[in-house]
Design a protein around this nucleic acid. Structure first.
Lengths: 136, 136
DNA sequence: TATTACCCTATCGGCTTAGTAGATTAATTG
DNA sequence: CAATTAATCTACTAAGCCGATAGGGTAATA
């Protein structure tokens, strides 16, 4: 399941990227327009800022703005920051690997192979889709 | 995330499908061999039985056995029974569709389109992989 | 210097997951 | 028939996560 966190984050990023001018967008503006709890959205945008996708400006006329070019914001990186691993199971995750405690031998595991396939196909989509593709 | 339920279920199915003879396999045998809590595995196998993939026999020499041919057990159906929707988000699910409460217009949603792509690529894998492929 | 709006910490209810316990039912075997 | 075996059913629980909320703190701008 895609968490609301990720869903809201993607919607917010899209909203910001759609701005003609490069003026900062306020949290409350996005929250209202996209039907998202303002306080919750706050924490999400903060996460995206720490990740380096967004920048922020305080005070009057402040808000959040895009730091990178939408073409350079890959879905794979956004997904990893907000959702966590792209793989369905830790033992096939590239960035969040963890050994299964019930599997003595990964290579002999029937589930393992299947999950690698799924991971690769998802990864291909997320790597080849950028924020710019979402704007359309 | 793939739930342990699904993971255990797949492992159990593989275990049963690997049996040379078609004699029923007992829960405890699978549980020990695959390091799964016996009682938990019980409920999983019961679910698979209700779905029509497995049959069971009580009493001495009883256990669970495969009803269908491994080639006819598609991963997509097993996934749906154990894991639920294959889609990452209900609004793009084919079998478990639900409207988003925050989206006024699905077709205008940037997340929607992305999630359809992911669903389709996963579905293709799950549809084209059967239990027979896992045995190898 | 007042206002605006980001920043941080803490908390909470509700839900799901994984696992446990115990009693019951049905089939086989002696 | 009786004893054994193993599936079936019901109920419960501990732990963890998610989404949301509350309230105050801090920095920049006009």
């Amino acid at each position: 399941m895609l968490s609301k966190k990720t869903k809201y984050g993607l919607k917010a990023l899209t909203f910001i990227a759609r701005q003609e001018n490069k003026k900062p967008v306020q949290i409350s503006t996005i929250a209202k327009s996209e039907n998202i709890s303002k306080k919750y959205l706050e924490s999400i945008l903060l996460t995206l800022k720490k990740d380096g996708v967004l920048g922020s400006k305080k005070g009057k006329g402040g808000g959040y703005y895009l730091i990178k070019n939408p073409n350079d914001v890959a879905m794979s990186s956004v997904m990893r920051v907000l959702e966590g691993p792209i793989a369905m199971i830790p033992c096939v995750s590239l960035n969040f690997y963890e050994k299964c405690d019930d599997c003595p031998n990964e290579n002999a595991c029937s589930v393992h192979k299947l999950m690698i396939e799924v991971r690769d196909s998802s990864l291909q989509i997320f790597n080849n889709t950028s924020l710019a593709d979402l704007i359309l």
